[in-house]
């Protein structure tokens, strides 16, 4: 079988984008290789590192494991769409101030993941370290660490990432 091409429409960081692509194309490759949105990073291409994390219809997901064709008409926010003009998103600002990164390659995924994670916590979702599954969420350092564990950082900036998020969360 030859490659199958399909039309897909995506709203990316507030802009409507229409493109024809291979059914095999992931959301991540559609963004990076077709739309020039290289903020989301490819670290493993298998959902094992979190560098590609974006917000898909408001939820954090691994864009490497999402086929673009299956998300026609989706609303996507990447790290490039978080700032308000020249004003950084509070998490972006906090990551810089707390030096919550070194090489910066996992950072777009970390920040998008943190945005999604704070929404989840706000909605009362428990985590694997929540002692009481039905109590309101208190974002302790341990809670933040567990909820952010889907984002690997080889530079080992976790000790900066947690306070960067905690400051915005509290």
């Amino acid at each position: 079988m030859d490659a199958v091409e399909v039309e897909v429409s995506l709203r990316v960081d507030g802009r409507q984008r229409r493109l024809t692509l291979d059914t095999r194309t992931s959301l991540l490759d559609a963004l990076r290789e077709r739309l020039g949105v290289t903020g989301p990073k490819k670290g493993c291409d298998h959902g094992q590192c979190g560098a590609c994390t974006i917000l898909l219809d408001g939820r954090r997901v691994n864009s490497c494991l999402a086929l673009a064709v299956a998300h026609d008409e989706a609303e996507i926010t990447t790290v490039e769409g978080l700032a308000d003009g020249d004003t950084l998103h509070p998490l972006q600002e906090s990551f810089v101030r707390h030096d919550g990164f070194q090489c910066g390659y996992c950072t777009p995924g970390q920040i998008c993941s943190a945005v999604g994670m704070l929404t989840e916590a706000e909605a009362g979702w428990p985590s694997a370290v929540s002692a009481d599954l039905t109590a309101p969420v208190e974002l302790t350092d341990a809670e933040i660490s567990e909820r952010m564990s889907g984002n690997l950082c080889r530079c080992g900036a976790y000790a900066g990432i947690v306070p960067a998020i905690a400051e915005v969360a509290r």
Binding site: G47, G50, P126, S127, A128, S130, S149, G150
Partner: peptide, 12 residues
């Protein structure tokens, strides 16, 4: 469920 995968993967 919460001990499996990651927040991002569980959302998919």
């Amino acid at each position: 469920l919460l001990s499996g995968a990651s927040g991002q993967l569980r959302n998919l």
